[in-house]
Simulated scan of single mutants.
Amino acid sequence: MKHIPPSGLAVVESRWWKHSNMSIAPLLDVSCNMFDAGPLSFHYEMANSAVAFQEAIPRIAAMGHIKYLYIAAHGNKEGIECYNGDLVSRAEISNIISNATFNRTALRGIHFGVCDFGSYENLAAIALDNRKLAWVSGYSRRADWLGSAALDMQLFYHLLGSHETEPHSRIEDAAKAVKTLAEGACREFGISICVRRGAQPANLMEEE
């Protein structure tokens, strides 16, 4: 019997350090289980190379029930730093997502739990290149692992817990919640949440 994660969330994580098994998966277990989602409430994969990311994202987007993708890895302003040393550039990431969402997909939002990569410019470019996405979020500054992971959990907790049905409304609920509960961390890590509004994406974290 095929298992369908009730949260609609998929995670692609790259190994963080050579001598550590640190992972965001146990933290997500807590966030998802707050909704009585039970075990296996989200889809999880590891991708430690550019090839692995290129293979995983289109396959996950094609699953049909995945609404949100959470990419967790080291990074810089240019792209995602894989565990094996590969760099997946913004252009490559955007192309991977564009190809993945070209056909029918339920994917509507992507969060980059990646240091430095989530500038407004990078996120807006990805949003403009991928019209099926309602929102894209991430961090524009170097972020403490535990602090940013905790903020990620708040974001997904309020996103999954929103009573709204439209993707834009759900992410707006989550953005308001994290701004209220973790204003300092949002400012320190430079989080942006870009939503499609007209010709140019808007950053929810800069709105009152």
Results as ranks from 00 to 15, higher is better:
20 S>D: 10
102 F>W: 12
94 S>Q: 14
127 A>R: 13
190 G>M: 03
175 A>L: 08
119 S>N: 05
60 I>M: 06
128 L>A: 12
61 A>V: 09
159 L>E: 00
137 S>W: 01
31 S>F: 06
170 R>N: 04
30 V>H: 13
206 E>Y: 07
174 A>H: 04
157 Y>M: 09
107 L>I: 07
203 N>Q: 05
172 E>L: 08
24 I>W: 02
60 I>S: 01
133 L>Y: 00
3 H>S: 10
68 Y>N: 05
145 W>V: 10
80 I>E: 05
128 L>V: 12
53 F>T: 02
109 G>W: 00
189 F>G: 01
193 I>W: 04
4 I>V: 14
178 V>E: 10
170 R>T: 12
90 R>I: 15
111 H>L: 15
29 D>E: 14
110 I>M: 07
85 G>Y: 02
182 A>S: 15
167 P>W: 00
191 I>E: 07
172 E>F: 06
57 I>Q: 00
89 S>G: 14
79 G>Q: 08
140 S>D: 13
100 A>Y: 01
57 I>C: 03
87 L>T: 15
117 F>K: 05
186 C>E: 07
207 E>N: 08
107 L>C: 06
124 A>H: 07
114 V>Y: 07
171 I>W: 00
38 G>I: 09
166 E>V: 12
200 Q>N: 13
145 W>H: 11
20 S>R: 13
50 A>N: 12
159 L>W: 01
69 L>S: 02
205 M>K: 12
88 V>L: 10
72 A>H: 08
35 F>Y: 12
120 Y>D: 10
53 F>R: 07
119 S>P: 04
194 C>Y: 02
145 W>L: 15
117 F>I: 06
190 G>L: 02
94 S>G: 13
193 I>G: 05
176 K>W: 09
206 E>C: 07
71 I>E: 03
100 A>I: 01
58 P>I: 06
145 W>K: 08
15 R>D: 12
